[in-house]
Amino acid sequence: MDVRLLTLNVNGEQHTLAVPVCKTLLEVLREDLHLTGTKHGCELGECGACTVLVDGEPILSCLALPIELEGREILTIEGLMEGGRPHPLQIAFAEMGAVQCGYCTPGVVLSAKALLDRNPMPTRQEIAEALSGNLCRCTGYIQILDAVERAVAWVRERRLILEEGRS
């Protein structure tokens, strides 16, 4: 068995682990690091539930090998809170009804974060495109798109307030 000692940067913390190379990031996150917020619905790259961010880009953890991710910044849903405060996307999802069963939610929130970090003012169509790999069976996506739009508006308002404060 090809087992390697790897150091992974997950949610800003360094973890050194002995990992068989055939273990996917999904398995390591859930089973070794007990970060069970990352979900799995097919393990074949077809549902998007296991989406996490690597250096800010959304990837499917079920198709990623940890050995290829040393030195990269891995962000899971557990790492999205800052100082115990939920991210605006998390609050918006909770408030706008974007969460029903919640199983697709971590992946959707992270895909949305990747979008907003790249494009802080996306159109509704751009949001839908960015989330097109994250299947949801509960919401019909509508309140999910509403929530992302709400988060966009909040972030913009906050920036405006900050700018006004400065001027």
Binding site: H40, Q90, E95, G97, V99
Partner: peptide
């Protein structure tokens, strides 16, 4: 009132434990 669900935030932060999350 359009209040948030009481379990919505834990689902958004990855805290909710589904059956396969139990160990």
């Amino acid at each position: 009132k359009p209040l948030p669900k009481i379990d919505a935030l834990p689902k958004c932060t990855g805290e909710t434990r589904y059956a396969d999350d139990l160990q």
